[in-house]
């Protein structure tokens, strides 16, 4: 079959949501950001809330999320997205407001903003990408880097005695009264993507209930900075990240699972 034939409209079984712009994604091949961007936008599309949604982009690899997502968005300072989202949601309680943050942004420099926005029970959605490393700045140790993990700032492996332990921020947040829904997912297989999308859908639908924060962690790879091939990185993630950050629902309807 000719290429033109393959991509002819009648043969299309899948197409990009119009809520992603035509700008070419700048993420590394095999990275989970592109997929997560897509499923977040698919959820917004399927809910028909484009005109009601305001997104907050972080500092990190997804700093340019607003170039790819075809919605109103603001770029926050490093770590401050939950405070920025709080400001928007408080003056626009009827809008859908979400943050999209990485592990350095959410669990290191923005820990205070994250915990307090969660504790106040802001009616926002937080999408948290955890790949255990600082991607954009070139592979430095993150709060979520695993014990023994080699990064450019832990070149001999993370020594927990001097560098602290990998932070399970999601488990910490799940215990706060202001948090209504917490789920940890992945996007490295088709099945995982379907589950992750379902969780993100719930996290957006929950904003209508006004019962507090809905939080979805996506455990992802950073094959470039882990210095592995995309396939190898996903294997490594399954073998090393998932045991420490197990997938599944952590809090549903305000109740710990």
């Amino acid at each position: 079959m000719e290429t033109n034939n393959i991509i002819s409209p009648e043969n299309l079984v899948y197409k990009k949501t119009s809520l992603l712009t035509d700008k070419i994604l700048t993420f590394c091949p095999g990275c989970g950001h592109g997929t997560t961007h897509r499923i977040v936008m698919e959820v917004v599309d399927e809910m028909g809330i484009q005109s009601e949604v305001i997104g907050v982009a972080p500092v990190g690899c997804s700093v340019l999320a607003y170039d790819f997502m075809n919605i109103d968005m603001v770029g926050a300072a490093h770590g401050r997205a939950p405070a920025v989202a709080t400001g928007i949601k408080r003056v626009y309680p009827e809008k859908f407001v979400f943050t999209y943050q990485g592990d350095g942004d959410l669990a290191a420099i923005g820990t205070s903003e994250t915990i307090h926005a969660c504790n106040r029970g802001e009616n926002i959605t937080i999408v948290f990408i955890n790949n255990g490393i600082y991607g954009m700045t070139g592979g430095q140790m993150a709060p979520t880097s695993l014990e023994g993990m080699k990064t450019s700032t832990s070149p001999y492996g993370r020594n927990v005695e001097t560098m602290g332990y990998p932070l399970k921020i999601t488990d910490l947040i799940a215990r706060l009264e202001g948090v209504y829904y917490v789920s940890r997912q992945a996007v490295h297989t088709a099945a995982a993507v379907r589950k992750a999308k379902k969780a993100i859908r719930i996290a957006f639908e929950n904003q209508k209930l006004k019962k507090g924060v809905s939080f979805v962690e996506i455990v992802s790879n950073c094959n470039s900075n882990w210095k592995q091939s995309p396939v190898k990185a996903n294997q490594w993630m399954e073998e090393n990240m998932f045991p420490y950050y197990p997938l599944g629902d952590i809090k549903v309807g305000g109740v710990l699972v």
Partner: peptide, 15 residues
């Protein structure tokens, strides 16, 4: 929770 958060809430709301 802090002035840091306050000014970033202002940033968000001012958008």
């Amino acid at each position: 929770e802090s002035e840091l958060a306050a000014i970033n809430m202002v940033y968000g709301a001012a958008c």
